[in-house]
Design a protein around this nucleic acid. Sequence first.
DNA 1: GACACCGTTCGACTATGCGGAACGCCAGGA
DNA 2: TCCTGGCGTTCCGCATAGTCGAACGGTGTC
Lengths: 272, 272
Amino acid sequence: MPRRSAVPRRVPAAFAEHAGDRQFATTLARGLEILRCFTPQQPVLSTAELAQRTGLPKPTVSRFTYTLSGMGYLQPDLPAGRYRLGPAVLSLGYPLIASFAFRQVVRPAMEALARQVSGSVSLGLRDRTNMVYVETCRSAATSSFQLSDIGMTHPIAATAIGRAHIAGCSPAERAALLNELRVKTPELWRQHAASVTQALAAFRDKGYCVSYGDLRPGIYALATPIGRLPSRELLVLNAVSPSWTRRAAQFEPTLAPLLLRCAHAIAAQFTA
Amino acid sequence: MPRRSAVPRRVPAAFAEHAGDRQFATTLARGLEILRCFTPQQPVLSTAELAQRTGLPKPTVSRFTYTLSGMGYLQPDLPAGRYRLGPAVLSLGYPLIASFAFRQVVRPAMEALARQVSGSVSLGLRDRTNMVYVETCRSAATSSFQLSDIGMTHPIAATAIGRAHIAGCSPAERAALLNELRVKTPELWRQHAASVTQALAAFRDKGYCVSYGDLRPGIYALATPIGRLPSRELLVLNAVSPSWTRRAAQFEPTLAPLLLRCAHAIAAQFTA
DNA sequence: GACACCGTTCGACTATGCGGAACGCCAGGA
DNA sequence: TCCTGGCGTTCCGCATAGTCGAACGGTGTC
């Protein structure tokens, strides 16, 4: 009688919120979660590793890797049973990235700023509680600790670019966003709520936001909102630089004017 | 008594080949097919349009858009019931694009070539029967007919970059690839088989491949293979330019040396 | 050669996804 | 104001597509 049917489906923690949501296509979400497991640090993953990261049983992972490989989103790697992302994942983003025609135009200004700050300079958009880079320029000397590049994401609350986004929102948007951060990322919110409040106050005076190693120790960043795309999304510019810990006091005075000048240049080319 | 159960699941043509394949996760594949419907020309799609393009019934599409929106891959657009790609689609490609560190290094050489040819210059990798751009540079004056950019795909058989890929393959790889093209894209193969054969012969003499408007009338292109990435994938360089129809005879003599010089420069930085 | 680990295959079970039909909404026209 | 047509979502019974424990085969190690 202890009917085996009681085996509860091992729901990955990430989708707990959708339990009982008949509208939510679990299989689709789980499959996409496979693709999300890969990182620059772990570009090749085995079935067992994917199973561990997603919380799915091995046979399920196996079926997904089979399907995703067939569609080009994964590529089998040697030794057998290991997978890398396939070039097809880039083609998913193409229609979106092609709609950002301004990227070509503003690159020189961003490259110049990247050289000036000896770091990386990016344009980002919001995705739920994250900022996603849609364009990135790096100075030749950038330490390759974590490579900034198109598609990189950072939590809004913990970063200068995220705080600048909040600052650039309308009051209504801002209220909704802050609430979303509080509810959906309580841990990050607890850590950074104070810095966020402070950043918003500072923004009113100075026109930019900062992060002094909030995401990663020793990495300092500045950011400022630029304007709205035709699709109404808010575009934000940042400049990130390591190695200012020894002269922290010089960081803002030196770089903030450069950032703001670049932002204005970009905004000008925008409306033009 | 005409039991309704006979209702055959309306299988989208794209997955006909997987009918009865228990290993293939149809729901995942269908959901991803939704994302593939978007193009630069049609960046916003309604439920009805998605249903039409995928061949799926409206309620199914609705469930997928709900799921994909929740995950950030789609963004609801106004008026209600319309969708755009969300920034999260870019984050799927990040781990892959970050692994192409060479992009930063070779950009200047590519930009120079793009200016020289008054067109676009790209680096591409193979995805099944297509080439996918992993980096693109455009001259300022590029006619924006179809915007080359990261993630853009082109069929192998119909393009210079695809033919150059074939030329750069080992004999065993080439045999397998040509067979795959014949089987999986019979229509394209029929149209371009002769040009492919010709291109391979020409490659042995000259070291590059051409396409004189094979994909789109009036668009001429050159391409040459560069070398293997650490992951063993073959990297290929192309240069595309419109507006040479009036001086077709000048196209190759003028641009081919520039392309080859750029390719060698890139290859050098590679092995270094 | 035994063992440990891993990835895939098998198969029974049923929860999950499916999709026709109904519903509610909105815009345009009479 | 009331139709009408088109669209997107919701509903809900059905059965199929997904699930996952267990078994299997392959590989590397001691």
